[in-house]
Simulated assay, not measured.
Amino acid sequence: MKFADIPGHSDIKRDLAQMVDSGRLPHALLLEGPEGCGKFALARALAQYIQCDNRHDGDSCGICQACRQHQAHQFIDTLYSFPVAKKNSRPTISDDFRQEFNTFMDQNPFMDFDRWPAMLDNTNAQPKFYVEEGNELIRRLSYTAHSARYKSVLMWLPERMNEDTANKMLKIVEEPYPDTLFIMTSDNPREILPTIYSRVQRIKVHRYSDAEVAAYISNVTSLDPAAAMRVAVLAQGSINRALALSAIHDDTDKYLEWFKSLMRNAYKRDVRALKAWSVEVAAEKREGILRFLAYCSRMIRENFINNLHDPRLNVMTDRENEFSIRFSPFINEKNATDLFQTINDAATDIAANANAKIVLFDITITVILLLIKK
């Protein structure tokens, strides 16, 4: 990956390139910032820039052997370290899931963590670093670099280490082997153990502007500029969230009809219609159901805000706005939080392979009770 492949962050790209060119690259660097802002993409581009044979104009060439190997995730002196799920009862390390991680990087260059457990084929366990990961890194970093001056470790989400693992990592971060570089990226730097956090040089990566997100979405999806900007405003600077919302946008009309049917039948307490509704929605694939639930969360938010009577705060289509004119008074401070929680809990259950019909019908009963709180 080249710096040019990443939208925005021109100042950070320039600073990283200057660190390398001036020989002032720290042995441990942390790129920290909100999810979806391109931190790991920057880390990958930096690793490629370090090893590129023909750097120019503040970027790697993209065509030399080192660049091609990086782009194929095959550069032998660049190691990847990331949280994983336990594999049976034996010690588990990143290399056990290296092929899955390569695919994940290709499909999700902005590293949407919510998609990672599914790649591990384990949606019930929270991925983390195990102590064995520290032992494996110590072993591999003790070897001399094969084809480059530096051995680089790209570490994704070090906040997912427990104390025992962090103590193992601390040893090699505090007293690194010669010509070893750690490039870490974190969504939640406050959760990194202080012993690690205090020993890295930190660079803050800020969230994208709405204009940057909209431009990116316009380039990689079929959305027109106006629709891309609506998505960007809702995404709040996260490319990952914008891509998820773009997928929803293609099915907006269908999701709106489902949302209207849910709310109208819940208001009428038509249990038979709600049961039929849950069967219809459950027929969708799991990803489709999750996108619909994300759409429900957005519509609850938009209708709650609509009560403030300030159009500048709302981002809805004309058809959504037409429905919300009459519906928004039913979403208020008495039930909005509980409605959000109900939808989020359902999404968690669906992601964990719970029975969709049961989960969706449970939503309908809860919505009946919550709409009473007008």
Rank of each mutant, 00 (worst) to 15 (best):
A45M: 05
I358C: 06
Q18V: 12
L223C: 06
Y150W: 10
T348M: 13
L46S: 06
D270K: 03
R90G: 04
V281Q: 03
S222K: 12
L369I: 05
K254H: 08
S261P: 01
A85V: 07
I305P: 06
E212K: 08
T78D: 01
M184A: 06
R24N: 15
T348F: 12
I372Q: 10
P91C: 07
A4P: 02
T317Y: 08
F330N: 14
A214D: 04
I372D: 12
N332Y: 13
A226I: 09
I63D: 07
E257G: 00
T165H: 01
E163T: 09
I50L: 00
F104M: 06
L157V: 02
V20L: 10
I192W: 07
L313D: 10
N265Y: 10
L256A: 02
A276N: 13
C64T: 03
G33R: 10
D210R: 07
K204Y: 11
R139E: 09
H146F: 05
D251S: 11
R301V: 10
L120A: 06
E284Y: 07
I63T: 04
K168W: 02
Q107R: 07
T185H: 01
D106E: 15
K87Y: 05
D164N: 11
S222V: 08
N162H: 11
H309L: 14
H249G: 00
R44H: 12
P329R: 14
Q51G: 02
R24Y: 09
E159F: 08
F361E: 13
Y197P: 00
K87F: 06
K285N: 10
L369G: 08
R291H: 13
E132Q: 11
L170N: 01
L46T: 04
F361W: 05
A346P: 12
F129H: 11
K171V: 03
K334R: 15
G134Q: 08
I239D: 06
T317A: 12
M119F: 14
Q74V: 00
F327L: 12
Y295I: 03
Q341M: 14
P26D: 10
T337H: 15
E191V: 00
D345F: 10
L154Q: 03
L243H: 02
I196E: 04
A336T: 15
N188R: 06
C64M: 04
I93M: 08
L16C: 11
D106G: 09
N303W: 08
L308G: 02
I196V: 03
Q236D: 13
R286I: 14
N321C: 09
Y80F: 13
